[in-house]
Design a protein around this nucleic acid. Structure first.
Lengths: 194, 194
DNA sequence: GCACAAAAGTGCAACGAGTCAACTAAGCTA
DNA sequence: TAGCTTAGTTGACTCGTTGCACTTTTGTGC
């Protein structure tokens, strides 16, 4: 009789992984990203440095532990949009509903500061989004029966995935997102001045 | 009496810099980026590794030796556009006139292949463009008397600077560029299928 | 012409990220 | 119990990158 469907081994593995991620985030927040070495993290989690790399692909990945199914969600947002809804609208909704809550989560403040104040992490965070460009482009193309490498679809995918990076730091995230989707929907218009 | 306006020192400095860059590019093309270490390059150029880093900020910078005044050209394209020409039009012209010739230069083929087949270099090349986002955004904002961090201007700057990355590899670069500028001008439209 | 400061270059040692191979130990399976 | 699998350890190693102390070259003021 097993307590859960996953084996003890799996649980222990997950535990050490979590211990490493926790130690890493704690140390990063305490001292700053550059002032913490992988060896520090390994010591704090009481594992060897090689074990750290068995669980995480690199130092930056330690910070973004839950990147997972973003891609699946993105594709689902397009493929399973409510009938009659345009692709652009579905993407707008998806960004508003999934990204903004994450970004404005109060506990997120110091984490956001850590990322913003470390160029290496900023770059990684942006690539985290844009890495899904190809998959999203294919999903959009599928929605219209177009070729998977259709240029317009690829451009839309990329431009949509840039939105978090563009909107980050604005006082009103919702308005910012809507503004950018306005550009993608109706074309760019000079800002109203005066 | 000096032979030219630049001192002998400057010339020697430029010479070693060039020797390093040449050795680097040659070795990279021969063996591939990852199979060449900085020490290899230093040996080939007959300098010490320390000297390499005195001339170049990092390994990737050895590949892109002439990044220089791209930013100045971009800003000039916006600020000194012919009267009556829209900003979008000026940027379209600038991309068509400066980027396409570089990209389609025949001698560029193996170089392009090197960059495309090395993820590290691909990422660096993209950042080379997007690094100028802030400056271009400010130039666009100036053109309309808007705030330097105006969101619409920042978005346009970013989207325009993404165009090289989006169009790269397409059979017809000119059409690709025009298509994407079409999106930015009139908004995104589903691709024509069938 | 000469002394002197700045700059260019060298050599060496070091640090941190990341990899590799050989090993130990724990959990799973039969 | 025996035996396979796999997480984790250990230690040495590569490579990019930096810092430091030192020598050589060059431009400048005297």
């Amino acid at each position: 009789m097993t307590v859960s469907s996953i084996s003890r081994r799996e649980r222990k593995k997950a535990a050490t992984r979590q211990a490493i991620a926790d130690a890493a985030l704690r140390l990063f927040l305490e001292r700053g990203y550059d002032q913490v070495s992988i060896r520090d993290i390994a010591d704090a989690a009481d594992v060897s440095t090689t074990t750290v790399f068995k669980h995480f692909t690199g130092k930056e990945a330690l910070v973004f532990d839950e990147d997972q199914d973003r891609e699946a969600q993105l594709i689902a947002a397009v493929a399973q949009r409510t009938p009659g809804q345009s692709v652009l609208d579905a993407l707008r909704r998806h960004v508003l509903d999934t990204w903004i809550p994450i970004e404005t989560h109060p506990q997120r403040a110091e984490f956001t500061h850590l990322v913003d104040s470390t160029p290496e992490l900023r770059a990684y965070a942006e690539r985290m989004w844009t890495r899904h460009t190809k998959a999203l482009a294919a999903a959009i193309a599928d929605a219209f029966g177009a070729d998977h490498d259709d240029l317009a679809c690829a451009a839309l995918a990329r431009y949509v995935l840039e939105i978090p990076a563009l909107a980050r730091g604005r006082h009103d995230l919702q308005t910012a997102v809507e503004t950018i989707f306005g550009i993608l929907t109706h074309g760019w218009r000079p800002p109203i001045t005066g």
